[in-house]
């Protein structure tokens, strides 16, 4: 059986909120290392990969592998019933029909309990190769969100060009063009504002802004976001969570003219 207790319901609320517009029905794959999710969007352009390690829960118990097929709209409805600071416990039997969610207030004696019916989801699981990326950029997640939103006002696509000079986000559309360039920057007092660029060779790729803006819904999960790029492979956008847990998005590039 599965029993996984989260100190704050807020973490799961934010994760589900960040991915629910991209993917609808997902298997939450539970095993002794934690709870994982991998799902593509309907058009097969983007891939979501979430890992909540067992260390992110206390306690965590999962005796055998269980796939919980959950509709994210249903999960969102139930998670709305939890206060952000509630303790959240997920429970399921070994061959479950439902997943049980218990919300407990740490400050009062309230205990809420909900069951969500599970679905049989036949999802293609993709193997994501280990990649040595040519460029890795760590930057404030709010800054990345603003750049994507700003450029989307002008164009559907953004080119991300990384050289030793810095990283340039550029777009052009019907009304004109725009760009934002960032250089490496260290703020000793506020390290969450750092921009770090690690480059082994120059990279230039073009991506759909609609998807990037969607990924940025995860900005509330982490002060920093990591962008990993290599020519002609999908972009990795990673929001690191505590205990080596993460929420990753992969986006296929636009190719050719």
């Amino acid at each position: 059986m599965l029993e996984a207790r989260l100190e704050q319901a807020n973490l799961l609320k934010k994760v589900v909120d960040a991915i629910k517009d991209l993917v609808q029905d997902c298997n939450f794959d539970c095993n002794d290392s934690g709870i994982a999710l991998q799902a593509m969007d309907n058009s097969h352009v983007a891939l979501v990969s979430m890992m909540l390690k067992s260390e992110s829960f206390s306690p965590f118990r999962c005796d055998r592998n269980i796939a919980l097929g959950i509709n994210l709209t249903s999960l969102t409805k139930v998670l709305r019933c939890a206060a952000n600071e509630d303790i959240l416990t997920l429970k399921a039997e070994d061959a479950p029909d439902v997943v049980n969610l218990v919300f407990e207030s740490a400050e009062s004696d309230r205990l809420s309990e909900y069951d969500i019916k599970l679905m049989d989801i036949d999802q293609e699981h993709l193997g994501i190769p280990e990649t040595e990326y040519a460029a890795t950029i760590s930057m404030p997640s709010a800054e990345f969100q603003k750049i994507c939103r700003d450029l989307m006002a002008l164009s559907e696509s953004v080119s991300i060009e990384c050289t030793k000079e810095g990283v340039k986000f550029a777009c052009s559309g019907d009304i004109g063009s725009g760009s934002v360039t960032l250089r490496s920057h260290t703020n000793v007092e506020k390290p969450q504002l750092n921009v770090e660029i690690d480059l082994s060779e120059p990279v230039a790729l073009t991506f759909s802004l609609k998807y990037l803006v969607n990924f940025c819904k995860a900005s509330g999960l982490s002060e920093q976001v990591r962008l990993c790029l290599s020519n002609e492979v999908p972009l990795l956008v990673e929001y690191a969570l505590s205990n080596n847990s993460y929420l990753r998005f992969y986006l296929a590039p636009k190719i050719g003219d």
């Binding site: 891939l47 293609e124 759909s208």
Partner: peptide, 14 residues
């Protein structure tokens, strides 16, 4: 602007 590629062109099913 380029043509949007598909994520399954890069990551293999299995």
């Amino acid at each position: 602007e380029g043509t949007q590629s598909n994520i399954t062109n890069f990551f293999q099913g299995g």
